[in-house]
């Protein structure tokens, strides 16, 4: 009986802790908003983060985007061939990339690359007392460390997503037209006809949300690191897992709200 009670107890505590953590992340987000509204913004720091989050992620994003588009074209081709509708492959790839895969895959790649780095960096700063040093020098760490990262995430994710969308469609084209022999005119015309501006823009709005999530979660985990080098490692792992889960869950709700 005691064992059962203990299990229930632990389960309840785990849920409460999760809810509490969500609340703390939200508070961190609000404090970021608050500090964003207070000039001066550290432009140099923002640019540095934008370079790190954006420019340095181009390669992975181009790679994932291109190959995703290629795979979609290949898979779609086998499906559509059964209905003699091969020319729909182009619009399927384009819709899939702009609405879902572009934003989500980009966000996941950037989470793995930059979100983890944010957690590790801030975690190291926490355990080596650099964050305390900021407080002591009357400089708010949220303003100096987190705001630039969040701004970089929110701006660079849509930019990367555009690249990913474009490369995905391009990849789909190269598999579809020269390799599988779909008529190029039909391929492109179907994209023009079936893809809306709204599909692209909503995908970009999603991407901005994902950028917000991965940077806030990464910063939160790093900022609240305890326990030395091991703690930094733990924070990094947790940041990636939590950010990835949050991105996928919020994707559902964003889709439900937007489309």
């Amino acid at each position: 009986m005691n064992k059962i009670a203990a299990t229930v107890d632990n389960f309840g505590r785990a849920i409460l802790e999760n809810i509490e953590e969500m609340g703390r992340i939200l508070i961190l987000f609000l404090s970021v908003l608050a500090w964003m509204a207070r000039p001066p913004l550290k432009l140099r720091l923002i640019f540095k983060q934008m370079e790190f989050v954006g420019v340095k992620s181009i390669f992975v994003v181009v790679l994932t985007g291109t190959f995703t588009g290629m795979v979609m074209a290949l898979q779609g081709y086998y499906g559509f061939r059964m209905f003699n509708a091969e020319s729909l492959v182009g619009s399927t790839v384009a819709l899939g990339m702009t609405r879902e895969l572009g934003p989500v895959l980009t966000a996941l790649m950037v989470t793995a690359r930059a979100g983890s780095a944010m957690a590790a960096e801030l975690g190291t700063m926490r355990v080596t007392e650099q964050i305390d040093a900021l407080y002591v020098m009357a400089a708010n760490p949220v303003k100096h460390l987190i705001v630039p990262r969040v701004i970089a995430g929110v701006i660079m994710l849509p930019a990367l997503t555009i690249v990913s969308d474009f490369m995905g469609i391009l990849g789909g084209y190269f598999v579809g037209v020269p390799v599988l022999g779909i008529n190029s005119g039909a391929f492109i015309n179907n994209i023009n006809k079936l893809v809306d501006l709204g599909d692209i823009y909503n995908g970009l709005i999603k991407a901005a949300f994902f950028g917000l999530i991965l940077s806030v979660v990464g910063c939160y985990k790093g900022f609240n690191t305890t326990g030395g080098a091991e703690g930094v490692g733990k924070a990094t792992t947790e940041a990636v897992v939590l950010a990835a889960i949050s991105i996928l869950i919020s994707d559902y709700f964003l889709t439900a709200i937007m489309f």
């Binding site: 934008m50 420019v55 690249v163 969308d165 501006l197």
Partner: peptide
């Protein structure tokens, strides 16, 4: 410089966005 890299990247992204919007949008 960092600023130039970021600026260039954002510019390229905007050009691609503009191109895609042009192709699929009503402005076609």
């Amino acid at each position: 410089s960092t600023e130039a890299k970021v600026g260039l990247f954002v510019l390229v992204a905007l050009i691609i966005l503009g191109y895609m919007s042009f192709r699929v949008g009503e402005s076609g």
